[in-house]
Amino acid sequence: MLVPDGNTFLVHPMAFDGPCKPTTISFMISGIIIAPDSPEAWKGRNQGRWLIFKDVDGLSVDGTGMIDGRGKGWWDIICAKHGHLPGCVKLAPTVLSFLQCNKVSLSNILVVDSPQTHILITGCNNVVIRYLSVKSPETSPNTDGIHISSSHGVFIRNTNIGSGDDCVSIGDHTSDIYITDVDCGPGHGVSIGSLGKSGNEVKVDNINVIRVRFNKTTNGVRIKTWQVGRGHVRGVLYEDINFMDVKNPIIIDQYYCNVRGACESTKTGVQISDVRYAGIFGTSKSKVAINLNCSQAVPCTDILLDTILLAPSTPGKEVISSCNNAYGSSAGIVEPESCFLE
């Protein structure tokens, strides 16, 4: 399938459903695809989706073109930003959804102004995303760059992401995720979670975030879980990370809640273990540059800080570490000094 150069195509919500007979399918985007600019176009349709690929294996989406979600009409009525408005909407379309697809390649195109999440990867195996650009305003609500859930073997590399929410967010039942050579900003950083909101069993393994640059993001590398969750997050590597004026460079929050401090304490929690931070450099806008707020019921264990140099964004200020129920060790120079429990 070819979207030719020099043309702009208005496309209403559309699903490409497999399975397909060919072992490889090429979708070449050289021109521009735009969404309807009014939410009215989704009446009677799935409000959470725009372009969907489902059960399509061996798919390659490539090209020098652009996909424009024209999300402003949704941003103006979404409850996350306009909860006081009668009739505000909680759900808005994702530009590109890949559902139950295997051996997928997504490369080179520009994806802009999604109403909500830009790219969704759910129930997929062996996905490669590279040389992609994702852009939406810092003020656009819930516009994650790439969200991954229930997927295994996902590779994101050489990609630029700027949005109003997480550059990359990693949900439950994921493993073998590799995020390398990525520029993130503006946005909320790279997040694992939030996990366990419904009290479910969480399984997240082997997450690797390597050579990622964060520019003026709200968070840097973050793990967030709800107290009512169960299960585990383990085998996480953050390596060769650079922060520029990041508000919360390193954060684990096992007390995540819609309203900070409003969730009652429980005796459950998601076990976070075997997390390594290695070669972390840059500047923090906040005083607490390393914030490990772990569960009293299920503490964080086997956390390693290896060669960390974080300085304040404003000369003359100070940065510190803050730990609750966090057990681990340090290697090399660690500034600010670690605060692990013995």
Rank of each mutant, 00 (worst) to 15 (best):
I170H: 08
I280H: 11
G189A: 13
V275N: 09
V259L: 08
K197M: 09
N248P: 02
D245G: 04
A262L: 09
H173C: 07
A278D: 10
R213V: 15
T180M: 12
I179E: 11
N219V: 00
E239A: 10
I170N: 06
V182T: 15
G185A: 12
F243D: 00
S198L: 14
K224E: 04
I223T: 01
D245N: 14
G171K: 09
D205V: 07
S273M: 10
V182K: 09
T266G: 14
K267S: 15
I241P: 04
R260C: 05
C184G: 09
V270E: 13
G279P: 09
V202Q: 04
Q254P: 06
G193M: 11
G220W: 01
A262Q: 13
V204E: 01
T217K: 02
D181Q: 13
E201T: 13
G193P: 12
G187A: 10
N219G: 08
E201K: 11
D240H: 11
I241E: 01
I251T: 15
I250M: 12
R230N: 12
T268E: 14
N248Q: 13
D181L: 12
Y238K: 04
C263H: 07
G185Y: 02
G220N: 00
V212G: 01
I272R: 03
G187H: 08
R211M: 01
N248L: 10
Q254H: 04
F281I: 13
V228F: 00
G269E: 00
D240L: 08
S265H: 09
